[in-house]
């Protein structure tokens, strides 16, 4: 049936912030399911008796899959209490992805805010393994404050192999890193649009200002990908919850080329 879920065993759980954890799930041996094709897709994760919540793929190989889960609602608050050895119930993958194969040879400009960094981590992990396929990779990540920074372990590696720009909106005086809005950092980078593809994910307001910044830097709308977060219930284009301006975020998205969704209304 359409809404059947498959159990995945948690093999690793890594604390990211006060209320956020990175989970690694192992692919069930017998199941013939494909975990994911390219980054950007999402799964619906369920807690029997509480409900389901959508999570985009945060890293994925042929044997495992990772999700970044923040305790925000009933389902997620339950999920973050689970431990290695416990099971998560998944259905998916759903939705569109970043067309990574098609983008080979390009330089990537990856811009994320807050939990919106999670699907972009999927992109960077993908590129890590196929580094030679892509030109330069510029990553710009903004978080509210230093305590909210996600994927610190990865950041160390990315700082070496990519052009990583990490910033926080506000921080105590003792903080040594960069402070300021991520859009500002992007703007100051001086990058042009030549041979580049931008990928943007974060809160709606951050997406809006980032697009404006990219426009100023000369990016065309078909050079930009955005990924939206909406309420997803069915994941298959039936329930209507995720629809904006006639687009199903679950099926036509969550990853859209910006020229396709420019000017959409809530």
């Amino acid at each position: 049936m359409l809404f059947n879920a498959t159990p995945f065993r948690i093999v690793k759980k890594e604390k990211q912030t006060e209320d956020t954890y990175l989970f690694r799930l192992e692919k069930p041996k017998k199941e013939k399911i494909k975990l994911c094709y390219e980054p950007g897709e999402f799964f619906l994760v369920s807690v029997p008796g509480i409900g389901e919540a959508p999570f985009s793929v945060c890293a994925c190989s042929k044997d495992f899959i990772e999700f970044n889960i923040r305790g925000l609602g009933d389902v997620t608050n339950h999920l973050i209490k689970l431990k290695p050895g416990d099971y998560l119930w998944l259905r998916g993958p759903y939705g569109t992805s970043y067309p990574m194969k098609e983008l080979k040879g390009n330089s990537l400009v990856i811009i994320g805010g807050g939990t919106g960094v999670a699907p972009l981590r999927g992109v960077l992990k993908y590129v890590e393994e196929r580094r030679a396929d892509y030109d330069r990779v510029h990553a710009f990540f903004g978080f509210r404050d230093p305590n909210e920074i996600l994927f610190k372990k990865d950041m160390k590696l990315w700082n070496r192999i990519f052009d990583l720009n990490l910033t926080v909106d506000k921080a105590p005086k003792s903080y040594k890193g960069r402070v300021g809005l991520v859009t500002k950092v992007v703007e100051e980078s001086g990058l042009n649009n030549k041979n580049k593809i931008a990928m943007v994910c974060g809160p709606p307001i951050m997406i809006k200002f980032t697009i404006q910044t990219l426009e100023k830097m000369g990016f065309h709308h078909d050079q930009i990908f955005v990924s939206f977060e909406r309420r997803m219930k069915c994941g298959v284009g039936m329930c209507g919850h995720c629809m904006i301006s006639g687009k199903y975020v679950c099926k036509d998205g969550p990853v859209f080329r910006y020229n396709k969704v420019k000017g959409i209304r809530e």
Partner: peptide
């Protein structure tokens, strides 16, 4: 119109 919600109830 057939939009729906999915709900767990114990």
């Amino acid at each position: 119109c057939l939009c729906f919600d999915m709900i767990d109830e114990l």
